[in-house]
Design a protein around this nucleic acid. Structure first.
Lengths: 338, 338
DNA sequence: CGCTGCCAGGAAAGCGCTTACCTGAACACA
DNA sequence: TGTGTTCAGGTAAGCGCTTTCCTGGCAGCG
């Protein structure tokens, strides 16, 4: 691998001059020398060693992002927003998938710190795990103490800059719409109980139902993996255990799609016999049959705001922004039968 | 930010000893000192500067991956395979999205070289652009000349280790199945003409149709963006221009889903009036209505093989592996009407 | 013609780390 | 007691780069 010294030698100049030419320093360099340096760069196919540059000029320009899984459409959209802002500001982004493993999340924060990133964005549900939360908070604090910036998406347990989707409001919106259409026997297809997002969504749902005098019994809730198969399994379990249900609320669209598949397989018509609603308004929601009634979260915007908070200089206190949830009415929700 | 020197000072040892303790060097260190160093590390919340480490011990451990867009399900699956192998071998992966911009692809290769990555994996269709291809090849050659490893997915124009999906065979499979079911008036919803993947898939399709005496007229092909909306637009254009078509072949599943949406919107029944087939067998293919007949590509496997090639020591000559395409029969393809 | 001021270019000091090499204490042996 | 070994721990070089500071040549001035 050619080094700057090689380039300088070949061009017959000092490393200092070569560096100045290559980085477009403000210090003037004679055209003759500049020319020679550029020729040497081309001939040697020289590319500066990024690590050496970072060491010599500690100019933190990359930002780290920790998500559960970029290939999950939810995070794909979120990431699009994050990327857009980062790119606009000339920042490179390192994306890390925790795959919902808290330990891995901790490791990544450590790793990003070692990489001297300018900021860390943590996106995706937190965990109901006081020990983990404390360790994470302490690691982030250590990072911030040395000038690092942190922003989180959807983690109220983090004491700092945060962008929050209105998960509880989304749950409420669904509950109100279901009640309006006469549903009283409602089953919930929930993701892992350990995720705070689940608690939030479920909380809104539960509160609205209780206020309307139709409290949600615990046995109408099934916790499963936060994906298509989990949704199908939970739907099957619910239908078997509680045959009287007129509606199924899935706490994300993947699970809802799984539920739809199971219902189709069992020959149960949606929404005539059982209604199904989802959460997130992923692209697939408009393509399944029947199209899915769901709650839209402004994911791209959420990501963009989080990156903005992370890149802007720290404010006085923690800045918390809540972005609204909206109901999207489609075909999978109809009036309760009878 | 605390440095190794700070740790050493606080522990009352030399930087060398501190380094040895922290990295678990084979050189023995007295328990007393080891203890003091570890305490200092904890107290100062010390994390080694990754760049300094990489400079001092040029041990290339990370590998770079350039894809069109990880959030596209095609690349999401491919990436899963890449990641799996990389993680198994203890390698970190940097993912770069080119968003199908050849210039950006070039920049990323350069950037990854500067990052001293151990290997670069380039995934996703190549471009019909001789100038770009030459520049890319030359950049990759420069990288390989200094010991870097390169593997590509689906780019026959790259002279080196490659993993290829059988795109042409996939096209053939679709054509043969369509012919078997009596279709003769076939429209093609193609992605950007500049992508070699499109040429390959179209090539197989065209050849099989021609061999069967039902050559594909150029006006039955529409090129559009490689996504859902592009599919819908191309389907509309085809139906308007050629009312006699009995089948629509979309060159990926996203476009097929767009076509299905358009047909539903126009009240055209699938597959009774018009059949639709896709390509790739994305998860969504099983969830749309009707479910989508398509060609499956072993994407995870493709990614895993590519990463394996990239991490294994270079072979004698270029190693090229072709992975098979298989037809997945679902509801959206039926016999030609009449 | 001698002095000052200016400026292009170079020498060299680090950035934070690893590691080859050196040092000196402790011990064994003659 | 003197010499040789051994080995824990320290010293310092160097990874590839940037940048401060210095140098030496030249123009401009009195």
């Amino acid at each position: 691998m050619a080094t700057l010294a090689d380039v300088a030698r070949r061009a017959g100049v000092s490393p200092a001059t070569a560096s100045r030419v290559i980085n477009g320093s403000s210090k003037p360099v004679a055209d003759e020398l500049r020319e020679r340096v550029l020729r040497a760069v081309a001939e040697l196919r020289y590319v500066p060693n990024a690590h050496a540059q970072l060491l010599a000029r500690p100019q933190r320009s990359v930002v780290g992002v920790v998500v559960h899984d970029v290939s999950d459409p939810y995070f794909a959209e979120l990431t699009r927003g994050l990327q857009r802002v980062a790119t606009d500001r000339g920042r490179l982004v390192i994306i890390c998938n925790s795959y919902r493993d808290p330990e891995r999340e901790l490791e990544y924060v450590e790793m990003l710190r070692g990489q001297q990133v300018a900021a860390i964005v943590l996106a995706g549900s937190g965990y109901h795990d006081a020990d983990f939360t404390a360790r994470l908070t302490e690691k982030l604090a250590a990072y911030e103490a040395t000038g690092g910036r942190v922003a989180v998406v959807g983690r109220h347990e983090h004491p700092g800059d945060a962008v929050m989707p209105a998960n509880d409001v989304g749950g409420r919106l669904l509950a109100e719409e279901l009640l309006r259409l006469g549903h009283r026997q409602i089953g919930v297809i929930a993701g892992p109980q350990v995720l705070t997002t689940i608690t939030d969504r479920l909380g809104g749902l539960r509160a609205a139902l209780a206020e309307a005098g139709a409290p949600l019994p615990e046995e109408h809730i099934r916790y499963a993996d936060f994906d298509r198969d989990g949704g199908a399994r939970a739907a099957a379990a619910l239908l078997d255990a509680c045959p009287g249900l007129t509606a199924l609320v899935a706490l994300n669209d993947s699970m809802a799609v799984g539920a739809l598949a199971l219902l189709r397989q069992r020959g149960i018509r949606v929404p005539e016999q059982v209604s199904v609603v989802g959460f997130d308004d992923m692209p697939v929601a408009a393509d399944v049959t029947p199209t899915l009634t769901t709650v839209r979260l402004p994911l791209v915007e959420l990501g963009a705001r989080a990156m903005t908070l992370a890149l802007d200089p720290a404010g006085g206190g923690p800045r918390v922004e809540v972005l609204p949830a909206t109901l999207v009415r489609r075909e999978s929700l109809g009036p309760a039968p009878r």
